[in-house]
Design a protein around this nucleic acid. Structure first.
Length: 460
RNA sequence: GGAGGAGUGGCCGAGCGGUCUAAGGCAGCGGACUUGAAAUCCGUCGUGGGGGCAACCCCACCGAGGGUUCGAAUCCCUCCUCCUCCGCCA
């Protein structure tokens, strides 16, 4: 959530940002509803805010009168004895009247605030000036390509996609997944299990080396925490599974549990930057997605992920430097895995609500002959911190403590295991159908190459 | 699952219907003393919101939400969290 003062002080900026992001706030007022839809949106938000403020002021006034009335009771004892009863009676009656009126008004105020925030909460974060503006795939800016895709033609065979490779080696079982849990669920088998664990191990070791405190986090979290991080657990197109008869949801990423850890706290400035990493299972409904892009392990309902999370001081220099650092760690991890990738600066229309700027790493995936997203890192500035109430106490140059400020929060994928497996299976496949194990994973996997069932029986 | 106990400002902790404008301490900050520091003494010091946008004024907040009352940190109800013991379990 943005600071409501931004709406009061600089509403044109909000309107411009809505337009840049193609961010619909009201259901009947989006990019397709005329050229001034963003200004109209801001106008409606302003009306809601003013309505709330007017009610709040009246309520404050009533409470002030109530306080006066009950304070007046103390003076009754000083009156002449025969006047006390009448004076007390008058005050009690006045107090009763004020109480009833204030209670009624309080309900209206509460409703007005809830309504304002329901809509204000849908307004996305501001956007980094260098973020490319636009909403189409081609509006993303490719920053660089690292590594060289293998020339399968020169090697004399056509690369298969990861699903064919993995099934031939008996590494995944989607049929059983579908039977037990439904489509897009799967079992990992044999060396894929060890690869999955090795990826987590590798990512966590790398995170630790960079100063992150590592965690295994809960796989469920309260709705309130989800909302704080900018996820909407209810609604038609939600990506979130929720647990019936409770306020718990299955997390879609450890971003939720790591970011939520510090809700309602005030940090000291010297605790920043605070670096957390966590491994969790990730659950996503993937409502409405299908097709080639979602084949096999690429888009599934459950996977395991190691996530990086950082809290920094509230100035853009600090969080931007951290954003670059997270991106560098992601690149280090995928360079270490020997996977060719490119870095993409995500366009304004595709940022999602909380992100101020977002970089994706896309690995080369020979099976489809295209780059596919494998990690993502976002600088969410203070957008999440505001609702989660995560602050820090800045120190002024003269040593005095300043008012608490909201921290900046950033997240990034260290390794999303399922997607990393896709990239490994496709990039490391051999003409004989086997898959070479990336060097950094060999110690944990206990093998440098995965063969099929025949060789497996003999090998162990 | 059962039985008890406890949640108060950055931290510790008192208060248990109106004198709470929440004692006291620690930490922080300013000052005095000192060559400097420590110790000591004096002062200052919560968060959020609204109004004037300067001094200042007002409102809310004692785990959360309801309730009783003219008036609630204080009484009642529900929930959450933590602690102790018992049971069960990996």
């Amino acid at each position: 959530m943005l600071d409501i003062k931004l709406l009061r002080d600089d509403s044109p900026r909000i309107a411009q940002n809505l337009a840049d992001r193609r961010a619909r706030v009201f259901d009947d007022l989006g990019p397709a509803d005329g050229p001034d839809w963003a200004e109209k949106t801001v106008g409606r938000l302003t009306m809601l805010d003013r309505g709330y403020l007017a009610l709040l002021q009246r309520q404050d006034e009533l409470r002030r009168l109530q306080n006066e009335t009950s304070a007046g009771m103390k003076a009754v004892g000083k009156l002449a004895k025969e006047e006390q009863a009448a004076a007390r009676e008058r005050l009690v009656e006045e107090g009763r009247r004020l109480r009833d009126e204030e209670r009624q008004l309080g309900l209206d105020t509460e409703k007005a605030l809830a309504e304002r925030d329901e809509w204000w909460g849908r307004v996305p974060n501001l956007t980094h000036p260098e973020t490319p503006r636009g909403g189409a795939d081609e509006d993303h800016r490719e920053l660089r390509r690292v590594g060289t895709p293998r020339d399968f033609e020169a090697e004399g065979f056509a690369p298969r996609d990861h699903l064919e490779v993995a099934e031939a080696l008996d590494l995944v079982d989607f049929a059983s997944g579908a039977k037990v849990a439904g489509p897009k669920f799967y079992y990992l088998k044999n060396e894929a299990v060890l690869l999955d664990l090795a990826l987590q191990h590798y990512a966590l070791q790398t995170a630790r080396r960079h100063g992150f405190t590592v965690h295994v986090t809960p796989d469920l979290a309260r709705e309130e925490i989800l909302r704080g991080l900018g996820f909407n657990p209810r609604g038609e197109s939600t990506q979130i599974y929720s647990v019936a008869n409770s306020d718990l949801c299955l997390v879609g990423t450890a971003e939720i549990t790591l970011g939520g850890m510090l809700a309602d706290t005030i940090l000291e400035e010297d605790q920043l930057p605070l670096l957390l990493a966590g491994v969790s299972h990730c659950f996503r409904t993937e409502a409405g997605s299908a097709g080639q892009e979602s084949k096999g392990l690429y888009r599934v309902h459950q996977f395991t992920k190691v996530e990086l999370f950082a809290f920094t001081a509230a100035d853009e220099g600090a969080s931007e430097a951290m954003h670059a650092r997270l991106l560098a760690i992601e690149e280090e991890i995928f360079t270490g895995l020997g996977l060719p990738y490119r870095v993409v600066d995500i366009a304004s229309g595709d940022l999602g609500g909380p992100a101020y700027r977002k970089f994706d790493l896309e690995a080369w995936m020979p099976g489809r002959g295209a780059y596919g997203e494998i990690t993502s890192t976002s600088n969410c500035t203070d957008y999440q911190a505001r609702r989660l109430k995560i602050r820090y106490r800045p120190g002024a140059p003269d040593g005095t403590k300043q008012k608490p400020r909201f921290v900046h929060m950033l997240n990034g994928t260290a390794v999303a295991c399922s997607r990393a497996l896709v990239a490994i299976f496709e990039n490391y496949q051999q003409a004989d159908g086997s898959v070479v194990v990336p060097e950094v994973l060999r110690a944990v996997v206990g093998a440098d190459r995965v063969f099929g069932a025949k060789r497996r029986a003999g090998a162990t």
